[in-house]
Every structure is written in structure tokens, then in C-alpha cells.
């Protein structure tokens, strides 16, 4: 049973890394939002599992917050925002997807190398979870760095924050208060950025179509 709970925790954390990669792969905002919702679902599953394994009922609240806020409310709201802005028809990666994904692999390898020896004394459930959480954080940063679109950057930021929550729950005993404050800070950030978005709408309108041409097929 001990072995199984460990494995399941790893699988869920690894699932988050996988979904982070799927985010890197997306080149449409709506697709990115859907994948982000999946990211949050996996996060809430992972947190719920930790709650069960650690017998820490307050983590169930965290899981519920992740599910409701990040998997439903924020994606749906962003979805509407994207449709209202009409930016969902743009292709929007900065670098090529291949090199970006290779970079992602490198980041995951890096976080493994850094975290596993560093947390060698920590308990096994936390150790690999920490490494995977660091991967999720780094991948979130990578998404933020490689996207030009403000909404994608928000999504990158929130996936980074998901990584933080994953790390916190894996480390046993992050008080609920902190998490609620984290969740609310994200919400505030989200509202602020939302307002900000409508203000920079003009910027989207002036996106140079030449920039799109570079991603069209048939160009080398």
C-alpha cells in the first residue's frame, strides 16, 4: 500500500509535468486554456491524493479550490475574454516548438539533477514530488518566456503557481491559510491583468501580419 500510494503520487505529479509539456506544444490560445484546465484538474487530483495519503483533510480544501478556481472559473473567464478580444485566431509561439520542447526536456533533467541529491534526506514521497514540482515551475517560466501574448503569459504564470502548490502539498504541512492567500493573490492578479488586457487591446489590433507569415507553412 505504501508503495502504491508513492507511485500514485508520482504518477500524478508526473502527469502535471506531461500537461506542462502539452501547454508548451499548444500554439492556439483556446487550446492552451483547455490544457491549462487539465493541468489544474491533475493538480487537484494530486493534492487530493496527498490529502488522503497524509490524512490531512485541510488539503482537500486546497484540492477543491484548485478544481473550482483554476480548472473551471479562471479558464472559463479567460475563454470569454479571449473570444471578446478576438485574439484566438492568432498563432503565437515565439521560437519553434521543437527547440522549445527540447529546452523543456533540458529543464526537467536539470531539476532532477538539482533536486534529487539536494533532498536526499527528505522522505521519499516528497523527494521526487519536489523534483517534479520544480520541473513544473521551470516549464511555467519557459511558457511565460516563449509567449508574446499576454493571456498565454498569464496561463504560464498560473501553471507556475500550480507547481508551487504541488511542491507545498508534497512537503507536508503548509498551512491552509497560506494557500488561501496564495489562491486569492492569484485571483487578484488575474483581475488586475484582466483589466490591463482590455487596456492593451490596441496592441493586439496592430499585430503585424508579417509576424504571422513567419510561422506559415512553406517557409523555411
Amino acid at each position: 500500500m505504501e508503495r502504491f500510494s508513492l507511485d500514485a503520487a508520482h504518477l500524478l505529479a508526473g502527469g502535471m509535468v506531461l500537461v506542462s509539456f502539452m501547454m508548451l506544444y499548444q500554439n492556439r490560445i483556446l487550446g492552451l486554456l483547455n490544457v491549462f484546465a487539465a493541468h489544474a484538474v491533475v493538480l487537484s487530483l494530486s493534492v487530493a491524493w496527498q490529502a488522503y495519503v497524509q490524512s490531512a483533510p485541510h488539503l482537500f480544501v486546497t484540492a477543491a479550490i484548485a478544481l473550482i478556481l483554476k480548472a473551471i472559473i479562471i479558464p472559463v473567464a479567460l475563454h470569454h475574454m479571449v473570444l471578446r478580444l478576438g485574439v484566438h485566431r492568432d498563432i503565437e509561439t515565439v521560437g519553434g516548438i521543437g527547440p522549445t520542447m527540447l529546452m523543456g526536456i533540458g529543464l526537467v533533467a536539470l531539476s532532477m539533477v538539482v533536486m534529487l541529491p539536494a533532498a536526499a534526506e527528505a522522505d521519499p514521497i516528497a523527494r521526487e514530488d519536489l523534483a517534479l514540482a520544480l520541473s513544473v515551475i521551470l516549464l511555467g517560466l519557459l511558457i511565460m518566456v516563449t509567449r508574446q501574448n499576454a493571456i498565454s503569459q498569464i496561463v504560464g504564470f498560473m501553471s507556475l503557481e500550480n507547481g508551487l502548490v504541488l511542491a507545498a502539498t508534497g512537503a507536508r504541512g503548509m498551512p491552509l491559510v497560506v494557500e488561501i492567500s496564495v489562491a486569492f493573490s492569484v485571483l487578484v492578479a488575474f483581475i488586475v491583468i484582466g483589466v490591463f488586457l482590455f487596456r492593451i487591446r490596441e496592441r493586439f489590433d496592430t499585430i503585424d501580419t508579417q509576424a504571422l507569415d513567419d510561422f506559415r507553412e512553406g517557409r523555411e
Binding site: G14, V17, F21, I105, V108
Partner: peptide
Amino acid sequence: EFVGGALMLGLLGTLL
């Protein structure tokens, strides 16, 4: 890119 994604997943799995 899609199939390259599979290659990277395989590589990632092996690395892990």
C-alpha cells in the same frame, strides 16, 4: 512536432 513530442516523451521517460 507532434511525433517529435513522442520522441521527447520517450526520452524524458528514459531520463527519469
